[in-house]
Nucleic acid binder design. Structure first.
Length: 794
DNA sequence: GTAGGGTTAG
């Protein structure tokens, strides 16, 4: 045996036959290593000699067992203290301390300790490396992992099956599955864990089919899969939501008599939940007599994922009735259900419970809280959690950006995005998908385009989610062509992609394009959803397609089994109102199976205004006033209508009502980007051409959108290099444009990018619009050089 | 006397 010791130490890089011998005698190999403490005895001696200088070194046997018990019980501080004061001559002591750090997730510290171990001349053994590799995996330290791998090869440990298995997992998790495959392929002996490491490695790499193939190959090689093989394979099915494969693995689990294992049970519930069969997950869960916290968590997560928030609430109750205490993961899985139904009280209770149980601070839980508060409309509370976090990662930043966007704090969202960049974070697909709607809402085409460029520069893949956000951004910023280009370049689309592009054409007044895209969508086999019809009906409403609007509305239930929701009725009312079909509109409201909201009455009110139907406006306004308090616009609209009819008493009554209720007039603001500069116009602006100053309250001089467009026209050049609109001594010299500015109340904007942007606007009424024909006949388009223009409420 | 697995936010 002494020879063997010498052999293992001298031959740093053993040849092939030696490697084979090494593996064949794994047990012997361990015995060799177990001799190490004896070999290291001289270190022990040297420490004994130094004891005079380090007085608090304790005797080795009792201290080692104390260190082990501290590490095993997770008392890391005690373990650390023990470790520093004890005799550190044996590799076992270092291994134990490194293990303790890894188990506590202190990967970096574990690696530092491993370096210190080498520095102090303690030789690592076959037990050291699995811990160190795990630390590299957890730390995502590929470079250091590779250097550890080379040390392993130098020391001849690259034949150790445990070390190889750990390396397979490490390379897979840091994104180098090819290296995992190489190691696996070169292994002389593989055990079930080697196979499992490959199966789960492919899952880490996002390659579900290779993972499942690996399970098949394992069978062929005569290796019997164990529960870990199936857990990994279930994870593979989960990756792409492949229910069929999931069911197949489930059958294999049953055939192997493993369905009573709690780890398997939670993986099965999770798989069915993620593959969309929550009913099966529920039935399976109900059959489990003794459910542990993980099983409950999986079920709560499955409900949350499948839009069953109330079942998620009930599940949490049952879990506690069963005397199973919710843990951190329970709360993390539960919070999305609160967000889904805006159950702020539930969310706050969870937050309180987390504080009471001392679960905070916890990075993931706090991020989930930021998300919940954001989705429940409490952006300030989301901020409070976010800024109070001890640790943040990219996901927490993304959640905060989303919270801002969801609550229309678009400028804050963009600022947070910039802060994230200044904090040296590298944004990911989710960051961009979260922040782009902010650029869309404020209509910042130049900045939006810069973000697109940054996405390209970083090489962030344009997945469906991000592509949809880009289509939306370009469409809202007026660049319909860029939006279409992204849509056309998408290899994979989903229903949201179609809905977004249909809506993009809709808001630009190209109703025929929206309609055509819907037909394409159906021909391509996509199933429309409720939002598809919102896009379509909006297209019909904006473009004034009354008959098509009715056709789509009626086909919702008849052809696609979709019940029209309140927003669909709203679109139809907009459409009917646009045509002045008030009888039909009233009938639709009476017949609708839903309680009319202020949105519905608001639609009727706006239509009454266009058609100067004061009686109907009063009816609609009274309904709105009885529904909620946030209806400033309705008060203003009604008051303006009374003013137009010269009913000044009514004007005074509405104004005093507003005053009584403490309602202030909100100020409309329009921004026009002209020659790279953003210019702001408010409802009553100082920018007033002298000839417009004396005009009435509703004149272009007081209309922020019109003022913004005027300035845009003055400040930019037309195709021949001349100004689009000139004022000479305060008078607009272009009657054609001046008449448009005076008439239009809706406008559509877009830009051509480098060749110079343009703006399209249209005037009131279904018969007098620059609509879908524009594209076919560019001459009919009001194409004016204007960087961008939008209308926002401050 | 030490080593490989599952349930986690967007």
């Amino acid at each position: 045996m002494a020879t063997a010791v010498v052999s293992s130490r001298l031959h740093i890089e053993p040849n092939l036959s030696q490697r084979r011998m090494f593996i064949a005698k794994t047990q012997a190999s361990r015995k060799i290593q177990s001799h190490e403490p004896k070999i290291k005895h001289h270190y022990s001696k040297s420490n004994t000699i130094n004891r005079g200088q380090v007085p608090r070194v304790e005797s080795s046997v009792s201290s080692v067992s104390r260190l082990v018990s501290y590490v095993n019980s997770g008392c890391l501080e005690n373990a650390r203290h023990m470790f520093e004061t004890m005799n550190k001559a044996s590799t076992f002591v270092w291994n134990t301390m490194i293990r303790g750090l890894v188990d506590s997730g202190l990967f970096e510290e574990a690696i530092v300790l491993y370096c210190r171990m080498q520095f102090e001349g303690i030789k690592p053994d076959n037990f050291t490396f699995p811990f160190v590799i795990k630390a590299c995996t957890g730390w995502f330290g590929l470079e250091y992992g590779q250097s550890v791998h080379s040390t392993i090869i130098k020391l001849g440990f690259d034949v150790d099956i445990y070390i190889c298995n750990a390396l397979i997992v490490m390379y897979a998790k840091v994104g180098c599955i090819e290296d995992s495959e190489k190691i696996f392929g070169r292994m002389f002996v593989r055990d079930v864990v080697s196979w499992n490491s490959m199966i789960s490695g492919y899952v880490s790499a996002g390659d579900s089919s290779s993972s499942l193939l690996c399970l098949q190959r394992m069978h062929k090689f005569g290796v019997k899969p164990d529960k870990f093989s199936f857990i990994a394979a279930l994870g593979a099915c989960t990756l792409e939501g492949c229910l069929l494969s999931g069911k197949e693995i489930f059958c294999q689990v049953v055939r192997n008599g493993l369905e009573l294992d709690s780890m398997i049970q939670s993986s099965i519930i999770d798989m069915f939940g993620r593959c969309g069969d929550v009913d099966f997950a529920e039935r399976f869960c109900n059959r489990i007599s003794q459910k542990n916290v993980v099983v409950w968590n999986s079920m709560i997560g499955a409900y949350a994922l499948n839009d069953k928030p109330f079942k998620s609430f009930a599940c949490l109750e049952k879990m506690q009735e069963d005397d199973v205490a919710p843990d951190i993961i329970t709360l993390i899985n539960f919070l999305p259900s609160c967000s889904k139904v805006g159950a702020l009280l539930h969310g706050k209770t969870v937050h309180g419970y987390a504080i009471k149980m001392d679960f905070l601070s916890h990075l993931v839980l706090e991020t989930a809280l930021v998300d919940m508060y954001g989705k429940c409309g409490r952006v300030k509370w989301a901020e409070r959690v976010f800024f109070g976090m001890k640790q943040r990662n990219l996901v927490s930043w993304n959640s905060m950006i989303s919270a801002y966007v969801q609550n229309s704090n678009d400028r804050e969202a963009i600022k947070t995005f910039q802060d994230l960049l200044n904090d040296s974070y590298v944004p990911n697909e989710m960051t961009f998908a979260s922040v782009l709607p902010a650029y869309a809402e404020i209509a910042l085409p130049k900045e939006g385009k810069q973000v697109h460029g940054y996405i390209y520069k970083l090489g962030v893949p344009l997945g469906i989610f991000l592509s949809n956000a880009m289509i939306h951004m370009y469409a809202k910023c007026g660049d319909l062509e860029a939006a279409r280009k992204i849509f056309d370049s998408m290899l994979f689309k989903d229903v949201v992609s179609w809905n977004t592009i249909i809506m993009a054409y809709a808001i630009h007044g190209f109703g025929t394009h929206s309609s055509r895209l819907f037909s394409e969508m159906i021909n391509d086999g996509y199933q429309p959803n409720s939002s598809t019809f919102v896009s379509l009906l909006s297209a019909c409403s904006i473009s004034g397609f009354l008959n098509e609007g009715w056709q789509y509305f009626n086909s919702m239930k008849r052809d696609y089994g979709l019940d029209p929701a309140i927003e669909h009725y709203g679109c139809m009312l907009d459409l009917l109102g646009r045509f002045g079909s008030f009888d039909q509109a009233k009938r639709l409201i009476e017949e609708m199976p839903l309680e009319p909201t202020s949105r519905i009455w608001g639609s009727l009110l706006a239509a009454s205004r266009h058609h100067r139907n004061i009686e109907l406006a009063e009816v609609a306004a009274n309904h709105i006033f009885s529904l909620d308090n946030d209806n400033t616009g309705c008060y203003i609209l009604l008051s303006n209508m009374y003013a137009e009819f010269g009913r000044w008493d009514e004007v005074a009554r509405v104004r005093s009502l507003m005053k009584k209720q403490g309602i202030d007039k909100t100020t409309g603001c329009s921004i026009v980007e002209c020659n790279g500069e953003n210019l702001y116009f408010y409802g009553v602006s100082k920018f007033k051409p002298p000839d417009l100053i004396k005009t009435k309250g509703n004149s272009p001089a007081c209309h922020s959108v019109r003022l913004a467009i005027c300035l845009g026209l003055i400040g930019t050049k037309d195709d021949d290099g001349g100004s689009q609109l000139e004022f000479i001594n305060g008078r607009c010299i272009s009657d054609r444009i001046s008449s448009k500015i005076g008439k239009f109340d809706r406008f559509i904007h877009r830009s051509f990018g480098d060749s110079g942007p343009s703006i399209q606007f249209k005037s009131t009424g279904p018969n007098n619009m620059v609509g879908s024909d524009c594209r076919e006949n560019p001459r009919s388009r009001e194409s004016l050089n204007l960087r961008s223009c939008t209308d926002v409420t401050m």
